[in-house]
Amino acid sequence: MAYALQQLINGISLGMIYGLIAVGYTMVYGIIGMINFAHGDVFMIGAFLSLIAVLLLSMGGVMGGPAGIILVLLLSVVITGVYGWAIERIAYRPLRGSFRLAPLISAIGLSIVLQNFVQVSQGARVKPMETLVPGGIEVMREEGFVVQFAYTQMMIIGVTLAVLAVFTILVTRTPLGRAMRACEQDRKMASLLGIDTDKTISLTFVIGAALASVAGTMYLLRYGVIDFYIGFLAGVKAFTAAVLGGIGSLPGAVLGGLLIGLIETFWSAYFSVQYKDVAAFSILVLTLIFLPTGLLGRQEVEKV
């Protein structure tokens, strides 16, 4: 019981991170109808930028306390946002309206570039960081097993919910959100109605990158070890989350993220750690075969 409760807590906090990344996939898929293959690497960049920000701030003596973490978040969000913008500008915009495979290949190319850029500039070795926020609350104790709700986990859940709340307001209540939804429905019509679709798509990438960067910061604070390759697996799992929740659906992405986090955690805890990635991949395959529209997605009817 206690063991399961601990897994539940771990699974939810991991799932929140996947959910944040998945929102970026779902948004981009919704608006330009393609998988942003470099999105997982944006998450990785976000984690690295957070690490650098933490080191900079602790050298300046301002790290420590919530203010420091908020500064780290801000720094990493802004610069990762620039990365998101640059990715769209370089690999997607020139190919808009072109062949479907071309942007996919250029995005895969850019994903390789980002990974190797970080490998070259920051080194291939893993970066272990001392934990900034140690400890947690003891939730319950059973036969010597202590269930701990770590402060970092609370922070992940709190920050994720706050970010998602702001983001939801942005999408549903602001002109930008309206423009995004209009582009999603019919980009040509939206541009005829005077919406700057290029700008809207750019902003979608920036927002997606910002969310991935928050996920990167959270990942760094919680797990403390990053390398240039973390983006690939996290990306595939987050994409699985987006598909599971129903691609194009924002609440679906978060729900999918939570499910993937929980399944992965429980799978590792009760079956086999080695095969935990197989669990995520199998869910992806099974979802696409048996529930291609996902949990909250819309049904599509084949037109003849």
């Binding site: 370089i90 190919l95 072109s98 062949f99 250029s106 190319g109 390789i112 570039v113 190797n116 070259v120």
Partner: peptide
């Protein structure tokens, strides 16, 4: 080694952008 893949990825992007077909 690591520069090689960097160049490789960059070439993929450039060729695709210039000649998507």
């Amino acid at each position: 080694q690591e520069w090689r893949m960097l160049v490789f990825g960059g070439a993929m992007v450039v060729i695709m952008v210039l000649r998507p077909r």
